[in-house]
Write a protein that binds this DNA or RNA. Structure first.
Lengths: 325, 325
DNA sequence: TTGTACGCGTTATCAT
DNA sequence: ATGATAACGCGTACAA
């Protein structure tokens, strides 16, 4: 029975019994039992997606839908299903049980922190782990966008429009070197340096992941003696605050202040002025992570990490060329 | 060993051996094997979330994050994990295997269609199924918001501001009576009738789930001989199109046209003018669905369906009272 | 209180 | 080509 149901060809079963088995299976509406199969095969056909729930951005996750779509689009055809689990402070090592208890064959871990010992150990023990987002100081396989390069493309866009006084608002405090926030800030600096524009630290503000911080940072930038003509904001959410600040200060966007964001949230296309931004290919990242995970599970090899390209999406908020003064 | 590890009290094991077992478990870093446990217990500790992927709103799902958060917040403490699967046209009955193959103990099914025979049969066979979104003509247990009531609250808000010419744009074509789109349109009608305002069918437009359709519907409404002073749009996404249409037509919101949406997407708070809307408590709905599913799984009873209340969120787009003409 | 043995459902292996 | 059997890891029923 097992041979008939699990192999399409290359098995030595007479056609007669083959049909007999298939007929019986149909009649009984037979479906193989997942637990029995997992136990015997020593494989679950399940992959885990670990989502870090920070109290701050608790329900923000706009990327979740496309990411999961990308993951399942790869896992599904390979015969894998997806188990999603939130990793929070109450049970910080839940994912350890997932792998060590063989509930899943591998996990995709989003936004790992640099000091996650149990995670490092899982990797060392040849468990299939793949990271969503680069982890500085570890050699765990990851997928990520090149944040510095994406930031450079945004700032170079502003430079090409004629801007020289370009401010930067990060999407959050710089927690450690090599973090997303750090890389985007670095890209901003590199772009300026590359075009021989001096980096003015008075034009750099540190956001706090939310719209409000973007609002306040922009207010304070507009109060600078030598007002910037453009601002690169390292996330769309924070950039929305920048647009709001410009609006309330009667500063026209993009004429008086050009704004470029990062992420390309669904709403960024819809607001007015629509937001020029750096698109993060969430679905592709999900698919890439899933492919890497499959490689690790099925081949047992250690996949090499992947950087995907961002894409600059030019919209109204940076729109026109700067009038020469 | 099993007794020691699975029961805190009420077992007849000497303290000495109890400690010996615990010590050994710690030393070995023992974790129970999920498949073995599932097989023996005849329970997987997994619940399935079936997401309907329509080609149209493929990456839209802004509710996904809070919904999953709500679900896991209930399932987690009960010892259940979540398996997420997209149900698409390629394998329309994948969820049948999920239950009949005992991969999961129950499923939450989002946006079921009225003619889903296999789903009805699963329910009849006492499988644990719970619906996200009411399904007209079936008696499957569901969670939903009272769409008609939510729509009424939105329109009554407009009436209370003095509006009499109130248009309606649905969020999509009316596929069947009792659908979300139908209920919201019905609520609009009921509110008008309840306040003795005649329902003018010339003020009703059928959107198509996207911003563009809202834009076009609003343009056409603004071309009406007796222009409406307010419009109820049955989804925020479509309402964004309405705002854009007003903007390009130099119609001031809310002074010349008040706009109320439905859903309360994350961006609705952030745009300008911020959108008055009817909030759908996505997280609570998720939690409620999970509670119902647990009841069905653990008690084997048939939970009664639940309507959760929407909440009217008044923002700028409906803002002021209408000046009497 | 402790030890043993069985069976959950599947699949791989080994003889026939 | 077919049939019989063992084993995956767990929890429980029963014997000791």
């Amino acid at each position: 029975v097992s041979l008939v149901l699990n192999y399409d060809s290359g098995i030595s079963i007479s056609e007669a019994t083959r049909q007999r088995v298939l007929e019986a299976a149909r009649e009984l509406d037979y479906r193989p039992n997942a637990a029995g199969r997992s136990l015997r095969r020593q494989r679950t056909g399940l992959a885990g997606l670990m989502l870090r729930r920070t109290p701050r951005q608790e329900n923000a996750n706009a990327f979740l839908s496309p990411v999961m779509d990308g993951i399942t689009s790869v896992l599904g055809p390979a015969g894998f299903q997806l188990l999603v689990e939130a990793v929070d402070e109450t049970r910080p090592d839940a994912y350890v049980n997932l792998l060590r208890g063989a509930r899943v064959d591998g996990i995709i871990f989003s936004r790992a922190t640099p000091d996650d010992e149990p995670l490092i150990r899982l990797d060392a023990d040849h468990h299939a782990v793949v990271l969503w987002g680069q982890l500085a100081g570890s050699n765990l396989p990851f997928v990520d966008v090149d944040n510095a390069r994406g930031a450079r493309s945004a700032v170079e866009h502003l430079v090409s429009l004629g801007h020289k006084r370009i401010a930067c608002i990060t999407n959050g405090p710089i927690r450690y070197v090599g973090s997303e926030s750090d890389d985007r800030l670095r890209g901003y600096r590199e772009a300026l340096v590359g075009h021989h524009i001096p980096v003015d630290n008075d034009l750099i503000r540190f956001g706090d992941f939310d719209e409000r911080s973007g609002y306040e940072a922009t207010r304070s930038l507009l109060a600078e003696p030598d007002t910037p003509t453009a601002v690169f904001v390292a996330s769309d959410e924070v950039a929305l605050g920048a647009l709001e600040a410009a609006r309330t200060a009667d500063v026209r966007v993009p004429d008086q202040l050009a704004v470029v964001g990062f992420d390309d949230l669904p709403s960024s296309r819809l607001i007015s002025p629509s937001l020029t931004t750096v698109r993060v290919p969430a679905r592709d990242l999900g698919a890439a992570a899933a492919r890497m995970l499959l490689e690790r599970i099925e081949l047992g090899t250690r996949p090499s990490s992947i950087f995907l390209d961002t894409e600059l999406i030019v919209r109204e908020s940076s729109g026109r060329e700067l009038l020469t003064r």
